[in-house]
Simulated assay, not measured.
Amino acid sequence: MERTTTASAADFLDRALVEEAAKKSGLLWVRPAGQPHARPLWHAWHDGAVVVVGDGAEQPLHGLAAGTPAALTLRSKDKGGRLVAFSAAVTAVAPGTPAWDGAVEELKGKRLNAPDTDTIGDRWARESRILRLEPTGPLAPHPDGSLAAAPVPTPVTTRKPIPAGLPKLLFKKKRRS
């Protein structure tokens, strides 16, 4: 009995961490199942899940589809580093439903520089998709090493070091007359 209580408390805390991180960060990294790389998407948190809008004139969703699981990574808003990672079930939100209306209201507030703020929900219903990414299972463990990719090899190099006197020229104080 004690074990169940501890597990449910840990699940509750994990869920709270995911919710708080999703509400504070405007960007997350999504890697649909079968895709080699994660891609950044802007999002909103609504009704216990991350919601994203894409395709049409909005951000491309690159392989993210209803019924396909995805791995999500949320970043820290202040430092920008990896905060929490988890898997999510992806479902489509149907236009005209209460879930659609709620998701549109949340996303509309996060959409910067929309050309049609008043009618954005109608445009999204015509040409875009709203997907709901609901957290499933436990949080993913933090990696032991860096996940940074190695730089691409290139023949371009710096020709020579900067001249020793250059910083003095750039940062010298102007004389008062």
Score class of each variant (00 low, 15 high):
residue 8 S to G: 08
residue 8 S to P: 04
residue 8 S to Y: 07
residue 9 A to R: 14
residue 9 A to C: 03
residue 9 A to K: 14
residue 9 A to P: 01
residue 9 A to V: 06
residue 9 A to I: 05
residue 10 A to E: 02
residue 11 D to P: 03
residue 13 L to P: 00
residue 13 L to W: 10
residue 14 D to S: 10
residue 14 D to I: 00
residue 14 D to E: 08
residue 14 D to C: 04
residue 15 R to H: 11
residue 15 R to K: 09
residue 15 R to S: 13
residue 15 R to M: 03
residue 16 A to T: 05
residue 16 A to S: 10
residue 16 A to W: 05
residue 16 A to P: 00
residue 16 A to R: 02
residue 17 L to M: 06
residue 17 L to D: 12
residue 17 L to V: 05
residue 18 V to C: 09
residue 18 V to W: 05
residue 19 E to N: 06
residue 19 E to Q: 15
residue 19 E to G: 13
residue 20 E to C: 06
residue 20 E to W: 11
residue 20 E to G: 05
residue 20 E to D: 15
residue 21 A to C: 12
residue 21 A to I: 02
residue 22 A to E: 00
residue 22 A to I: 01
residue 22 A to Y: 00
residue 23 K to S: 12
residue 23 K to Q: 14
residue 24 K to T: 08
residue 25 S to Q: 12
residue 25 S to P: 02
residue 26 G to V: 07
residue 27 L to Y: 03
residue 27 L to K: 01
residue 27 L to M: 10
residue 27 L to V: 11
residue 28 L to N: 04
residue 28 L to H: 01
residue 28 L to G: 02
residue 28 L to S: 09
residue 29 W to I: 13
residue 29 W to S: 14
residue 29 W to G: 07
residue 30 V to T: 02
residue 30 V to Q: 00
residue 30 V to A: 00
residue 31 R to G: 00
residue 31 R to E: 07
residue 31 R to W: 01
residue 31 R to V: 04
residue 32 P to Q: 15
residue 32 P to C: 12
residue 34 G to Y: 07
residue 34 G to L: 05
residue 34 G to R: 02
residue 34 G to S: 06
residue 35 Q to S: 07
residue 35 Q to D: 10
residue 35 Q to R: 01
residue 35 Q to M: 09
residue 36 P to N: 06
residue 37 H to G: 04
residue 37 H to E: 11
residue 38 A to I: 06
residue 39 R to S: 08
residue 39 R to L: 11
residue 40 P to I: 10
residue 41 L to C: 02
residue 41 L to V: 07
residue 42 W to N: 08
residue 42 W to Q: 14
residue 42 W to E: 15
residue 43 H to M: 09
residue 43 H to L: 11
residue 43 H to G: 08
residue 43 H to Y: 03
residue 44 A to W: 06
residue 44 A to H: 11
residue 45 W to F: 09
residue 45 W to T: 11
residue 45 W to C: 10
residue 46 H to V: 08
residue 46 H to K: 04
residue 46 H to E: 11
residue 46 H to P: 01
residue 46 H to Y: 08
residue 47 D to T: 06
residue 47 D to F: 01
residue 48 G to I: 09
residue 48 G to M: 13
residue 48 G to W: 14
residue 48 G to H: 02
residue 48 G to S: 14
residue 48 G to V: 07
residue 48 G to F: 11
residue 49 A to C: 01
residue 49 A to E: 03
residue 49 A to P: 02
residue 50 V to Q: 00
residue 50 V to C: 00
residue 50 V to A: 03
residue 51 V to W: 05
residue 52 V to E: 04
residue 52 V to G: 13
residue 52 V to S: 08
residue 53 V to W: 06
residue 54 G to R: 13
residue 54 G to I: 14
residue 54 G to C: 12
residue 54 G to P: 06
residue 54 G to F: 07
residue 54 G to E: 10
residue 55 D to M: 09
residue 55 D to E: 15
residue 55 D to V: 09
residue 55 D to H: 08
residue 55 D to C: 09
residue 55 D to Y: 03
residue 56 G to M: 12
residue 56 G to C: 07
residue 56 G to L: 15
residue 56 G to W: 06
residue 57 A to E: 15
residue 57 A to V: 14
residue 57 A to I: 13
residue 57 A to P: 15
residue 57 A to W: 13
residue 58 E to R: 13
residue 58 E to T: 10
residue 58 E to P: 04
residue 58 E to G: 09
residue 58 E to W: 07
